[in-house]
């Protein structure tokens, strides 16, 4: 049992390819910079230095962190602020159901790994073909991002006004592009693409009027558009298969590069 668990623990190291390390390093750099601006904005808005730092360690979810600081320092009530942020984070629930197995076996790994579920680590795991590589990608991405984000926030909270405006580097365009690049292989499956396009359109239309977080949840209605019209029983490739390809026929943008 012990030997087995040790084997499992060692396996991700072998699966760590250079392409993965490079891609993760790229996102980590962007994360650290945005974390820096988060720390600086939070302290600049009047919060004590410990607040953004603690928030980043225990919540570790950029969008909800920016929202909480904006709502708390904007003069709104604390209860609606926290509720709005929880709403933004409800998307982690289906994430966990979808890639829970990529965390690996055993309670400790599942309990710790759950905290590392963020858009990027989820999409990295989803884009890998076999389970070993999906797991390696999830942990490499999740742990690195956790470190990069928190170091960035800590530095930003102390550096304050010295932190440059990350929008000038176009980092706000980099994050949606990261998600697009990694879901692209799944989008080559037609029902998945229909569902994703319908969901994204719904969310974009709803976003100006609904509170933050709700539009993304609403996007799940797009799944209705992904229902196939072909006869029951006909083979329908799921997103997982589409992402992972058949015999490597449709390699993902991150796989094997």
């Amino acid at each position: 049992m012990r030997a087995l668990s040790r084997q499992v623990a060692v396996r991700p190291r072998h699966d760590l390819d250079r392409g993965l390390a490079r891609d993760v390093a790229l996102i980590c750099g962007a994360y650290a910079l945005v974390g820096g601006s988060f720390g600086a904005i939070a302290v600049g808005a009047g919060l004590p230095v410990w607040a953004p730092v603690l928030l980043s360690v225990v919540v570790f979810s950029g969008a909800s962190q920016f929202l909480l600081v904006a709502l708390l320092t904007g003069g709104g009530g604390v209860v609606p602020a926290v509720l709005a942020c929880l709403l933004v984070n409800t998307r982690h629930l289906p994430y966990g159901f979808a890639i829970g197995d990529a965390l690996g076996p055993g309670w400790p790994r599942r309990l710790v790994g759950s905290h590392l579920l963020v858009d990027e680590s989820v999409v990295f795991a989803l884009a890998r073909r076999d389970e070993g590589r999906a797991r390696a990608a999830f942990w490499a991405c999740g742990l690195s991002l956790f470190v990069a984000w928190n170091v960035g926030v800590l530095a930003g909270a102390f550096a304050g006004a010295a932190v440059p405006d990350t929008d000038a580097f176009g980092l706000d365009a980099a994050f949606p592009a990261v998600l697009l690049a990694l879901i692209m292989p799944a989008l080559r499956d037609s029902p998945t693409r229909r569902a994703a396009l319908a969901g994204a359109a719904l969310a974009a239309v709803a976003a100006p009027v609904l509170p933050a977080g709700l539009p993304v949840v609403l996007a799940l209605a797009g799944l209705l558009a992904g229902r196939t019209v072909r006869p029951r029983g006909a083979a329908e490739p799921g997103p997982r298969q589409a992402v992972r390809g058949t015999d490597g026929a449709v390699p993902g943008p991150v796989d094997e590069r």
């Binding site: 365009a173 992904g226 799921g238």
Partner: peptide, 22 residues
């Protein structure tokens, strides 16, 4: 299993769309 996988892609697409536009 297939549905949760597809739901994740839909959520990520929605996050990408809203964070691009809004």
């Amino acid at each position: 299993e297939r549905l949760t996988g597809r739901a994740t892609v839909v959520l990520l697409a929605a996050v990408a769309a809203t964070s691009t536009l809004i």
